Computed example of a mutant assay.
Amino acid sequence: MSDLKDRLRADLTTAIKARDQLRSSTIRMVLTAITNVEVGGKAAREVSDAEVLDVLGSEVKKRREAAEAFADGNRPEMAQKERDEAQVLAEYLPAQMSGEEIADIVTSAIESTGTAAGGMRGMGTVMGVVTPQTKGKADSAAVAAEVKRQLGA
């Protein structure tokens, strides 16, 4: 059983008792998404903390994209609701890496793989080394942008 999933369930109970509508509806939604992952596929299974983090990251990304779409569509109240939900979910994610930390990881990956001279042809190799180190801790688009920058694209 996932410790993070247990924490989400406990926090849901607390939010319901406190009558915190935003928090309880947001946690319910993410628990439903986790259940969908558990029952999806050929056989039902328990998810690990890593899989729960993947679901949380995916849900936060959906909220950010929806907030942008609502803001572009001149619906500021809905955009704010999506941002608030993303903020609730972000509390369960590990601390995000800074730009400097990402740059340091990318630099060491380029040095260790020896792809500096290869230019953009080495991007896949570098991303293969960097992704496991940054998964869940940094936005993959920001990581890819830093790899491109350092490889000279």
Rank of each mutant, 00 (worst) to 15 (best):
M1Q: 11
M1K: 09
D3A: 12
K5Y: 10
K5I: 12
R7T: 13
L8M: 12
A10S: 14
A10T: 11
L12C: 08
T13C: 00
T13M: 09
T13K: 15
A15K: 02
I16R: 15
K17G: 09
A18E: 14
R19D: 12
D20P: 02
Q21F: 07
L22I: 11
L22G: 04
R23Q: 12
R23A: 15
R23Y: 00
S24P: 02
S24W: 02
S24Y: 01
S25M: 04
R28Q: 11
R28V: 05
M29Y: 02
V30T: 07
V30F: 04
L31D: 07
T35F: 07
N36K: 11
G40W: 02
R45V: 10
E46T: 13
A50E: 15
V55Q: 03
K62Q: 03
R64N: 13
A66K: 01
A69Y: 00
A71Y: 06
A71R: 13
A71S: 14
G73P: 01
R75D: 12
R75W: 00
E77S: 13
E77V: 03
E77H: 05
M78H: 05
Q80E: 15
K81L: 14
E85M: 14
E85V: 05
V88K: 07
V88G: 11
A90K: 13
E91R: 13
L93G: 12
L93A: 10
L93W: 05
P94N: 11
P94K: 08
D104Q: 15
V106R: 09
S108G: 01
S108E: 15
A109E: 05
I110S: 12
I110D: 08
E111P: 02
E111M: 06
S112I: 04
S112L: 11
T113H: 10
G114W: 09
G114D: 08
T115E: 14
A116H: 03
A117T: 06
G118K: 08
G118H: 00
M123I: 13
G124H: 03
M127E: 00
V129F: 09
V129I: 10
V129K: 14
V130H: 09
T131W: 01
P132A: 07
T134F: 05
K135H: 11
K135N: 09
K135Q: 14
K137R: 15
D139G: 02
D139R: 03
A141W: 02
A142D: 14
V143G: 03
A144Q: 12
A145Q: 09
A145E: 12
A145L: 01
V147W: 03
R149P: 01
R149F: 04
G152T: 04
